[in-house]
């Protein structure tokens, strides 16, 4: 397989935790500009896959390339984030003791060293960017609220907003609609489709309705490797997938 024109390229990746193979010879390729949905039962290794891509977990074997040429296994979290990979955690993780605006301010693309942060002044451009994101994520009226006071769904949105502020090339979004109402779920699908227009995106989700809504290629993981890949209809008709989900 050629790495050219891929935004993410995983080949033969394995990782074990105390002898347990969480990721097992996983290969996965994402084209530039593509959005991909990843499904799979609990413990399939979806989150671990994101940990590997973002530098949190080092693979025991295999290749992990970003943008066709950058070997991600040689970099740490902060470097990978600065190269343009953003991540939303499975459990929404925002800075609870800060306001929504401060959360976004810390996420905004820009220099990441200490001294500029010490003498930083909020610029008009930054305020405009934050306004935009607040509008997109429907948090406009919550600007000065503490993030801790948001509902679970709103925290998910704030975290997506922080991803937008970061303006990465590739977004890894782990279970974005957990804890959302049906209406919010549809809204999120619309938002992600919007984002996917000029970003590459990987979405992990259990909610099939939501995945159908996204209308993109689906990869089903099971026991750390790819079980099936294709359109949602193809994957959900795949006997092995049905078997995995219906239980052994």
């Amino acid at each position: 397989m050629s790495k050219r024109n891929t935004i993410l390229y995983l080949d033969g990746v394995s990782v074990s935790f105390d002898g347990f193979r969480a990721i097992n010879n996983l290969s996965l390729v994402l084209d530039k500009g593509e959005m991909r949905a990843i499904i799979g039962p609990n413990g399939a290794g979806k989150t671990t896959m994101m940990d590997i891509v973002t530098g949190k977990t080092r693979p025991d074997a295999g290749e992990v390339y970003f943008d066709g040429e950058i070997d991600l296994t040689k970099h740490d979290e902060a470097e990978i984030a600065m190269m343009g990979i953003g991540r939303k955690f499975q459990k929404p993780t925002v800075f609870e003791s800060h306001t929504i605006e401060e959360n976004l301010m810390l996420a905004l693309k820009g220099p990441r060293s200490i001294f500029p942060a010490l003498f930083h002044r909020r610029s008009a451009a930054e305020v405009r960017q934050i306004d935009d994101i607040l509008g997109i994520t429907r948090l406009g009226d919550k600007r000065d609220e503490l993030a801790a006071n948001l509902s679970h769904g709103q925290k998910q949105w704030l975290e997506i907003g922080m991803l937008l502020a970061q303006d990465p090339k590739l977004l890894l979004v782990d279970e974005p609609v957990a804890g959302m109402t049906d209406a919010e779920t549809e809204e999120t699908a619309r938002l992600l489709k919007d984002i996917a227009r000029d970003h590459s995106v990987i979405v992990v989700e259990h909610d099939m309705h939501f995945v159908r809504e996204l209308g993109v290629k689906v990869t089903c993981l099971h026991e750390g490797s790819v079980l099936s890949e294709g359109s949602l209809d193809f994957v959900s008709a795949d006997e092995r997938v049905v078997e995995v989900y219906l239980g052994r």
Partner: peptide, 22 residues
Amino acid sequence: SKYGKLLMAVRDAESRTRFLGW
């Protein structure tokens, strides 16, 4: 300062700050 906000952010969710590039 913004650095101070960052300091508290590290206190509350250190790995979040790393994945933001800090």
